[in-house]
Design a protein around this nucleic acid. Structure first.
Lengths: 210, 210
DNA sequence: TGTACATCAGTGAACGCGCGTTCACTGATGTAC
DNA sequence: TGTACATCAGTGAACGCGCGTTCACTGATGTAC
C-alpha cells in the first residue's frame, strides 16, 4: 500500500526533516564542517539519536541533501542578478552570509563522504546555467580546450553553447571563487584590505572582457 | 642547567620530531584534514599516545608547525620561478603534489584550532614577498585601496612598495588560488576540462596585465 | 459509529571505535664528579 | 676510570567525552472495515 502523499503523517515527516536540516546547518555554521553530528542534532531536537534514522538514511544522506539545498539556494540567489555585476554581487553576498554552506559546495568534503550522487552534478549545472546567462565571450585560442568546453556543454544539456561563452563563464567563476574563498577564510581582512574594493576591481576587469 | 645544544639527546629529539611530523603529513594526505590524530601518529610510530607529549605540547602545536613548514616549503618552491609564468607553474605544481598541505594553508582550519601565532603571519608574508618579485603593475583607480595596500606593505616590512605592484601580486594570487583550489577539489576534472589549458590561459591574461 | 489492525515515531541499551590529555610511574642513558 | 645522580623517553591506566549505527521494543495514532 503506497503512503498517501499529503496525509497527516507525511506532512509531519516533511516538517521533521526540515527541522533536522535546519539544526544541521546551525551546527555547521557554529562548529565547522565536521561538527555535523547525527547525535548532536538529535539532542538539540530533544530526541534520542536513533530517532533521526526515521527521517534520513544516515549522516551521508543528510549531508547530500544539505548540499543539494545549498546549490538550489545559491542558484536562486544568482538568478536575482540581471547582469554580471549584480550576479557576482549576489554570489558573493550569498557566500558571505553563509560561509559554511559555501564550503559545503566547494571545499573538501568530510572524510568518508562519497559525493557520487548524480543529483549533485545536475544541481551544479543549474548554477552554471545561470552564470552563463550573463557571460560574455572569451576566445581560448586553443582547439582542444574549445572541444572540451563544447563537450561539457553538450553532456550537461546546455545546448549549442559557444565555447568562448563557456570559457568566459568559467573564468569568471574561477576568479570569483578565488576572491570569495579567500575572503571567507579571512585572508583579506588579516591583510587589512577591504574586500569590497578588491571585488569591484576584479568584476570590472571581468565585465570588460579582461 | 641549560641543555647542551647538539648533544646526543638533542639530536634524537630533533629526529623524533621530524618523524612525528612526517607521519602527521602522511595522515593528512590519506585521510583528510581532520584525520590528524595524536594517538594515531603514536600508533604508527609504534609508541603509546602520551609519548608524543615529550615532543609537542599537543595537537595544536603540532598543527602550527606543520603549517609553518608548509609555508616555508611553498615559498622555497616559488623561489625557483624566475618570471610570473614559471612561478605560477611552481605554485600550482606544489599544490597539486600535496593538496593536503595546500589546504592546510588556505582552507578552513580544524575546529578548535586558533591560528593566532605571529609566526604564521611572518611565514605568509615571505611567500608574498616572492610573488612580488615577479609582479607587474595594476592600477587600482581607488585612493582608499592604494592606502590599504601601502599600509599592508609597510606593516609587513616590505618597504616602499608601489600599490600598483602590490595589487598586481594580490590579484595574481587570488586568481591562482581560484584555479588551483578548484583543480584540487576535482571540479575541472568532473567537468571534463583540462586544467593545464585553463591555467595557461589565465596566466597569459595575468602576464599581459589583464 | 465503533472496533481491530497496521503503521510508524521514538526509546534505551548496546556495539566498537576514536579522541586529546593527565598522571604517577619505570627504566635506560648521558653526565658530573 | 668508576660511580652516583639527574635527566628524560616512554608506559599503562584512567578521565570524560564523542561518534555512527543496529536492534528489539513500546506506545500512540491514523486507517480500513
Amino acid at each position: 500500500v503506497a503512503p498517501q502523499a499529503g496525509g497527516i503523517r507525511d506532512r509531519f515527516r516533511a516538517q521533521m526533516r526540515q527541522e533536522v536540516k535546519d539544526l544541521a546547518l546551525r551546527q555547521l555554521a557554529t562548529g565547522g564542517p565536521q561538527a555535523l553530528s547525527v547525535n548532536a542534532i538529535a539532542k538539540d531536537l530533544g530526541v534520542s539519536g536513533p530517532a533521526l534514522y526515521r527521517y534520513f538514511d544516515g549522516r551521508d544522506a543528510l549531508l547530500t541533501e544539505l548540499i543539494l539545498d545549498a546549490y538550489a539556494d545559491l542558484t536562486a540567489a544568482m538568478t536575482a542578478g540581471t547582469d554580471l555585476r549584480s550576479l557576482a554581487a549576489a554570489y558573493r553576498a550569498w557566500a558571505l552570509a553563509q560561509p559554511h554552506r559555501y564550503r559545503l559546495l566547494f571545499a573538501a568534503p568530510l572524510p568518508g563522504y562519497d559525493a557520487h550522487d548524480p543529483r549533485l552534478v545536475a544541481a551544479s549545472t543549474e548554477a552554471m546555467r545561470v552564470l552563463l546567462t550573463v557571460a560574455g565571450a572569451r576566445d581560448s585560442g586553443d582547439r582542444d580546450l574549445d572541444e572540451q568546453l563544447e563537450a561539457w556543454a553538450r553532456s550537461r544539456g546546455l545546448g549549442d553553447l559557444a565555447p568562448s561563452r563557456a570559457l568566459d563563464a568559467i573564468t569568471g567563476w574561477s576568479r570569483l571563487h578565488g576572491l570569495v574563498s579567500l575572503e571567507i577564510e579571512g585572508n583579506w581582512a588579516s591583510m587589512g584590505l577591504d574586500p569590497d574594493l578588491l571585488f569591484t576591481r576584479e568584476v570590472d576587469a571581468l565585465s570588460s572582457g579582461r
